[in-house]
């Protein structure tokens, strides 16, 4: 955290263009999650600067951070982080609620996003009634619903089996094809290969940053 004297990131300098699909790789302790948390404004940075869509992100208090998160960012977590007492539809419409969008409009939008991840028929189900892959797709729909500039995925396939992982990656690739900027933190090489660029972290510095030929997840699905 901000008060911590431990140096996790020791000089990282990189830029992500709009529409990129970047995999951030590294073994545990390499600082990849810390980087993502800083990018997601879930965590503060001690030194340096972070510019998102030409807006310098600095001196954030919690209220400001919350507003930026709501406006710029969508999150996908390894453990899904759906609210367990809310249905899939309600989960997806929650960021829209915090954007102040009226209820009716919210529901229409949320249904639309659920449809895009193929879960329209499951909209009234609670997270406990969904499989892991379905939960992650709901989470992706929720992250998309606020129409963020950047989608941040922290080990989105970490809790899923290979087949489901590829289905989720397929979805992420499709969203990327629509022009969305996506950063994926992962330690699985096959998942990283499905992105367009791999940033390799080790001990808090970038040891490799290369563009790759994307492997399409749809080849593995079905």
């Amino acid at each position: 955290m901000g008060a911590s004297s431990l140096h996790v990131l020791k000089g990282i300098n990189f830029e992500v263009e709009e529409g990129e699909l970047v995999a951030i790789m590294g073994s545990s302790g390499s600082g990849k999650s810390t980087l993502l948390n800083i990018l997601g404004m879930l965590d503060g940075l001690d030194k340096g600067e972070y510019i998102l869509d030409e807006v310098p992100i600095k001196d954030l208090n919690e209220t400001k951070a919350a507003k930026y998160r709501n406006k710029f960012l969508g999150f996908v977590f390894q453990s899904f982080n759906l609210i367990n007492y809310k249905s899939a539809l309600e989960n997806v419409s929650l960021p829209l609620y915090y954007q102040g969008i009226p209820r009716k409009e919210r529901q229409i939008l949320a249904i639309d996003y659920l449809d895009r991840v193929g879960l329209k028929a499951w909209s009234t189900h609670l997270p406990s009634e969904l499989s892991g892959g379905q939960k992650q797709r709901v989470a992706i729909a929720r992250a998309m619903a606020s129409r963020p500039k950047v989608l941040l995925a922290d080990e989105p396939t970490g809790a899923l089996d290979t087949k489901t992982s590829y289905e989720v990656m397929d979805l992420i690739q499709k969203i990327n094809e629509e022009g969305k900027t996506i950063l994926v933190v992962t330690h699985e090489p096959d998942i990283a290969q499905m992105c367009k660029r791999i940033v390799q972290l080790k001990d808090g510095i970038i040891i490799e940053d290369k563009k790759i030929d994307q492997v399409l997840a749809s080849e593995y699905v079905q």
């Binding site: 997601g40 879930l42 919690e62 209220t63 919350a66 507003k67 998160r69 709501n70 406006k71 999150f75 982080n81 759906l82 609210i83 929650l94 960021p95 915090y98 954007q99 929720r142 606020s146």
Partner: peptide, 9 residues
């Protein structure tokens, strides 16, 4: 979760 989705304190 709510805060990550944009809820202010």
């Amino acid at each position: 979760i709510r805060k990550a989705l944009g809820a202010t304190p």
